[in-house]
Amino acid sequence: MRLALIRAGVVENVILAADDYQALADVQAIETDVAGPGWTYEAGAFAPPVPAVPAHPAVPVEVWTYQAKTVMSLTTLGSLGLDGAVFGLNPEASLYDAVEAAIEGLPEQIRIAAQIQLAGAPGTRRDAPLLAALSGPLGLTSEMIDQLFIAAAAIP
């Protein structure tokens, strides 16, 4: 017979045993066709393990540009601890406003590429050179950008 070996309500192992198998004193041996290690046993019923939730959501490699623009439009400079004075903006200005101002300060070739990217590219990659070029002047740390990407990915 197939037995789940249970300690403190959790299946530790599943074995094939003879009908006369005797479990250790602190272990319950309950016959099962479905349970496996990690399952729980309570009130005569087995339940599968609950999947672990990651401590931190994964940073997406790419988000849709509309998602990025939405997050930037809804995020104020002040909420990021940035003042925007270098661009003539106050802390209540949006990150999107600051991005547009930062783009204006780029060399012509990079500025044109950035404007095209912002205006019509379908996606924005976390590892894009343009993002790296803008993060310094904007005062954005890598952690801030990660959080913005996570927030953007959550927008349907």
Score class of each variant (00 low, 15 high):
104 E>S: 03
28 Q>F: 14
30 I>A: 06
97 D>I: 00
135 S>K: 12
78 G>T: 09
106 L>Q: 08
52 A>S: 05
86 V>K: 15
53 V>C: 02
10 V>G: 06
76 T>K: 06
29 A>F: 09
108 E>H: 11
81 G>K: 05
97 D>F: 04
109 Q>E: 09
88 G>Y: 04
111 R>H: 01
17 A>P: 00
31 E>T: 13
130 L>V: 01
60 P>D: 00
118 L>F: 10
119 A>I: 07
11 V>N: 09
64 W>S: 04
80 L>K: 04
117 Q>F: 10
38 G>N: 04
64 W>G: 01
143 E>P: 00
100 E>H: 01
72 M>A: 15
2 R>G: 07
150 I>H: 06
69 K>C: 09
101 A>C: 01
138 L>K: 14
121 A>D: 11
36 G>A: 10
50 V>F: 05
94 S>R: 05
155 I>L: 08
148 L>G: 09
1 M>W: 14
150 I>C: 02
144 M>V: 11
151 A>S: 11
96 Y>G: 00
68 A>Q: 12
30 I>T: 12
115 Q>W: 08
141 T>P: 08
132 A>F: 03
140 L>R: 12
10 V>Q: 15
65 T>E: 07
103 I>W: 00
147 Q>A: 15
45 A>R: 12
153 A>Q: 11
137 P>W: 12
109 Q>W: 09
138 L>A: 10
139 G>E: 14
43 A>G: 04
11 V>A: 11
119 A>S: 07
57 P>I: 01
103 I>N: 03
20 D>K: 15
28 Q>E: 12
40 T>M: 10
4 A>W: 07
53 V>M: 03
33 D>S: 15
151 A>N: 11
68 A>M: 14
62 E>M: 04
57 P>T: 00
99 V>T: 04
100 E>P: 00
106 L>H: 08
120 G>H: 06
117 Q>V: 01
31 E>F: 08
49 P>H: 00
68 A>I: 14
98 A>W: 01
54 P>Y: 00
2 R>H: 04
96 Y>K: 11
19 D>M: 10
125 R>N: 08
114 A>I: 05
116 I>G: 02
21 Y>E: 03
153 A>E: 14
108 E>L: 13
96 Y>M: 12
22 Q>K: 15
59 V>M: 02
18 A>V: 13
108 E>K: 12
130 L>I: 11
94 S>A: 06
100 E>V: 03
151 A>H: 09
140 L>W: 13
77 L>V: 07
63 V>Q: 01
42 E>N: 05
74 L>V: 09
51 P>V: 07
20 D>F: 11
88 G>R: 04
148 L>A: 07
121 A>E: 12
65 T>I: 04
87 F>G: 03
3 L>N: 04
143 E>Q: 13
